[in-house]
Design a binder for these strands. Structure first.
Lengths: 218, 218
DNA sequence: TAAAACTTTTAAGTTAGCTTAAAAATTAAT
DNA sequence: ATTAATTTTTAAGCTAACTTAAAAGTTTTA
């Protein structure tokens, strides 16, 4: 299975499992940086391989086989993220970028070695769940959006749901990092932004950023 | 630069720096598992990119630019080998196989991180020298072929110059492993094979294997 | 609900990296 | 030093993964 196919399947999986559920060829194409025409072609091809269901003008849906494949790639991606995060001093954004390439060139055998070394972690540094080698994935998620955090409460960052570079720069600047503890001293929300005081540091989360930082109560 | 190009350049580099100096398209093709025709085409293309010198029916020769590129890939390969060898319990053959894929998907940045973590090692687990980030490579090599080892002398394995699976199985069986110490108690050579007694264990190196195990005096 | 706006699909074409088969050149052998 | 064997090159053709442009279909909006 080629890199192009793995990325295509993964994009459908990610779109399907996130809020935005648009898995029509055009939307997948946009995310992969290819033309809609190419995405339509690919969709047709993968349908013949029984990796997804394709019906003209309809959203693409992974078959069980396709889902399994997506989970295998996602597993490798997240294991690499967890591993690089532990081993090296690198930004989450850089780690993501490396994992994006390594995920396609990693045998199941090596993935298992990495997982074993890390003690079979259930989450990566963004807080995203890591599928196990059978393709099973933890769905339990007690985290809430940081924007919805309560004054006076202590939280632990559990999830940074983005692959946007500026977002990670913003996080680095404000010490927002996977598993970091924070105390919310003040919280103020309008429909355009949320202002939060963490310790003595006040940050403003604009609409784009409110829904990608998740925390657990501590 | 594509994986195909990197592998092509690397194959020329490896052939050129080893005993066998045949870098004609046909020989490179054989090693890459592609047709000679494909190799000739590739050679012509890379000549236009100033990565090698191509003259009809002649051996291919890397330019400075081509050599630099080869060294960069070789560096990543050997760093991955050293890293995987240190981190995980895997056979040298498996490590080689993973490194063969990962080398093409590793940024210079990550390579430097790995090198730093390992304390900038000069050799990989096969004893092959690791080029530094400027493409400089240690050429000093005091090792001799195991077949030429002397009776009564103690040696350390410094180099296993092969990527052949059976060879590594043979090594594993006979405890021949990078940096392992061995005492040669008896040595007997014909022009077809070398028989060596290491401790109490007698092994026979056929012609194929005599020139790929190297040792340093201890 | 009909026109306008947008998206998806089809069609035709491109490039990288291969293939096989035959022609051309080199190398080896008698 | 020819002939035979081998290797390299040329030529033609294939497939995966794209592209652009136009046709077909869907969705939005007035």
């Amino acid at each position: 299975m080629s890199v192009a196919i793995e990325n295509f399947i993964k994009a459908i999986y990610n779109n399907d499992s996130h809020d935005i559920k648009d898995t029509k060829p055009g939307n997948i194409a946009k995310q992969l940086g290819i033309s809609s025409a190419a995405a339509t072609d690919m969709a047709k091809k993968l349908a013949t391989k029984d990796l997804l269901h394709y019906e003209k003008y309809q959203a693409l849906q992974l078959t069980d086989k396709g889902t399994k494949m997506a989970l295998n790639v996602v597993r490798k991606h997240r294991l690499w993220e967890a591993f690089l995060f532990k081993m090296f001093d690198m930004s989450l954004h850089d780690i993501h970028r490396e994992a994006e390439l390594l995920e396609h060139q990693t045998s199941d055998f090596l993935a298992d070695k990495i997982s074993e070394y890390l003690g079979h972690p259930k989450f990566d540094p963004h807080g995203d769940p890591i599928p196990n080698s059978n393709g099973e994935i933890t769905t339990e998620d007690h985290s809430i959006a940081l924007a919805d955090a309560n004054e006076g409460q202590t939280y632990v960052i559990s999830r940074l749901m983005s692959d946007n570079k500026e977002f990670f720069e913003f996080c680095a600047l404000n010490d927002i990092k996977y598993r970091n503890t924070l105390v919310v001293s003040k919280q103020f929300t309008t429909n355009k932004m949320t202002q939060i005081t963490i310790g003595t540091n006040t940050i403003v989360l604009n609409q784009d950023f409110t829904k990608i930082i998740y925390v657990d109560e501590k």
